[in-house]
Design a protein around this nucleic acid. Structure first.
Lengths: 103, 103
DNA sequence: ACTCATGTTCGACAAACTTCGAACATCCTC
DNA sequence: GAGGATGTTCGAAGTTTGTCGAACATGAGT
């Protein structure tokens, strides 16, 4: 079984931005950025697993993540290079921010 | 009369990304990026003026645009410096992309 | 083969978003 | 002040999104 992972260049910018514009999904991206590859079940978002699965699908179909299947587990990682090639500086700009930093 | 324009640092990242993750609003941002200050009515988005007003409000409340009132007109501009200070490289990353460029 | 663990998909629901026309507010000009 | 121009606000309608439990699919291990 193969998972659909589009070419970044084929994904509209607005799709990428919408995908990142959600607290749960951005939290996932932050963890991937910090830890590298992560198994699906290790994201503790306080959400049902169906919901987590949904968010991971949104990220994957936006071209942001790669999913490697191994047994019954799926290992998710950021497609850093491809993102950086198409949107240079985007990840740094988005992730390099401490939330709620008023000043 | 004064318009509400929040401090960028007080706006969640996801709010900014959601604001940019819409075709109509990103089109507005592109035009502002290209032309500088623009009068509200000069955006031809193929949308009713009520809808245009809504999108401009979303951008303004996300801290992305500044609105200057002059008579019955409102002149909108990008808050470039503030965006750049809080999200270095974000605007360039988002706007420096030709849409649909499949390679 | 049965069971357990890991995820996905389906159907449903509520909340949020986009869109519009109509009504309103405000300012400018005659 | 009447009329026109520029925008905003107010419902309302339709769509999309986020969320969940239940059912399903798949692989590992006993």
């Amino acid at each position: 079984m193969e998972l659909y992972e589009p070419d970044m260049a084929a994904v509209p910018v607005t799709t990428v931005l919408s995908a990142l514009g959600d607290d749960a999904r951005l939290a996932i991206v932050r963890e991937l950025h910090r830890d590298g590859e992560r198994c699906c079940g290790t994201f503790d978002l306080g959400l049902a697993k169906a919901t987590r699965s949904h968010h991971l699908k949104v990220l994957r179909e936006a071209g942001i993540t790669h999913t490697r299947i191994e047994g019954t587990s799926r290992f998710v990682s950021l497609r850093r290079d491809e993102i950086e090639r198409r949107y240079p500086g985007l990840l740094d700009a988005v992730l390099g921010v401490k939330q709620g930093t008023a000043h």
